[in-house]
């Protein structure tokens, strides 16, 4: 397995390098000027030109690229054009909220989605199965911000049980941290619960119709043993794939939830950076995100061997 992991790590570096070059060129070829954004709405041409010169934005593209590449190879992600602070520091500040939200969302989605999917498959055509169909349609079709606003109105404004917005770091207290994440986690989880539940149901239905399940039933295995030990383990590969994809998607795709609940996460950092043309932040975050994507895929591939002994690398 070690050579396989090594090969995948090398390919991850290649992917990140390609993403880096692509992003570098794309954002610089897109019209827009960070100097103009910094100077303010009605700044004069002379002031903007001075800032552009100071930031080195007048240098030819190949020169800028070599500066950037050389810094990256030395592990320097650069400095934000706007705040003047190191990109890595800004990114680390924003990772905790995004990771907290992603992990809680994933935990809730897996717990509820897998249970829901198993129940629906076990009693296919029954009430739970039909409820899942309705819930899935709801989860897929209602946008996160609609659910978010509804939850805020219900639980934060009407009964004032939970905070409307913001994020409290975990070191300031678990209760405050958790209470700030309840509403965004529920809002963000609904489509993922629907997704995981549908895939679990489909996968379980296929396994439950296998001969060995009938044999297990004939041997007197309990419902729990049949579902968890025999069926779920064999239905696990597609479920694990979906969970892995969901986590990767969550890391980069929580922008809307972070905006609605005013969570200072990575998603908002990137959106603000794109609006302002803060090149070092955009480049670094996208490169790191691509790396995380590749690593999660690798972790999922390796996890297959744990639940399916037939898979070997």
């Amino acid at each position: 397995m070690a050579p396989y992991i090594l090969r995948r790590m090398v390919s991850a570096i290649a992917v990140m390098a390609m993403v880096g070059i692509f992003v570098f060129l794309l954002i610089r070829l897109t019209p827009g000027d960070p100097a103009a954004v910094m100077a303010g709405r009605n700044a004069t041409e002379q002031i903007i030109a001075g800032i552009r010169e100071q930031l080195g934005l007048n240098e030819p593209l190949p020169v800028q690229f070599i500066h950037w590449l050389s810094a990256m190879l030395h592990g320097d992600f650069g400095t934000s054009i706007f705040s003047g602070r190191p990109v890595l520091e800004l990114l680390l500040q924003r990772l905790e909220p995004t990771n907290s939200l992603s992990i809680l969302t994933l935990a809730l989605s897996v717990a509820v989605g897998v249970s829901f999917g198993i129940q629906a498959a076990w009693r296919a055509g029954g009430l739970v199965d039909r409820l899942l169909t309705v819930f899935s349609a709801f989860g897929y079709s209602v946008p996160v911000f609609v659910i978010g606003y509804f939850l805020v109105y219900l639980l934060a404004i009407s009964v004032a049980w939970l905070p409307v917005q913001g994020y409290a770091p975990i070191e300031e207290g678990f209760g405050d941290w958790f209470s700030h994440l309840i509403l965004p986690t529920i809002a963000l989880s609904l489509p993922f619960i629907a997704f995981v539940a549908r895939v679990t149901r489909a996968s379980m239905l296929e396994v439950l119709s296998e001969d060995y399940m009938r044999t297990a039933a004939a041997k007197g295995a309990s419902s729990y043993a049949m579902l968890v030990h025999h069926a779920l383990k064999n239905a696990g590969v597609p479920i694990l794939t979906v969970i892995g994809l969901s986590f990767a998607y969550l890391i980069g795709g929580v922008v809307l939830t972070e905006t609605v609940f005013n969570i200072p996460g990575v998603g908002r950092l990137v959106v603000d950076a794109i609006n302002n043309r803060d090149y070092p932040i955009i480049q670094s975050v996208l490169i790191l995100t691509s790396g995380v994507y590749v690593l999660i895929n690798l972790a999922v591939d390796l996890a297959y061997t744990l639940i399916d002994p037939r898979i070997r690398y």
Binding site: V152, A156, A160, V164, T259, F261
Partner: peptide, 13 residues
Amino acid sequence: IPDPQTALAALQS
């Protein structure tokens, strides 16, 4: 707080 609806809710609460 970039989202106006969230800003209003924060003010109201």
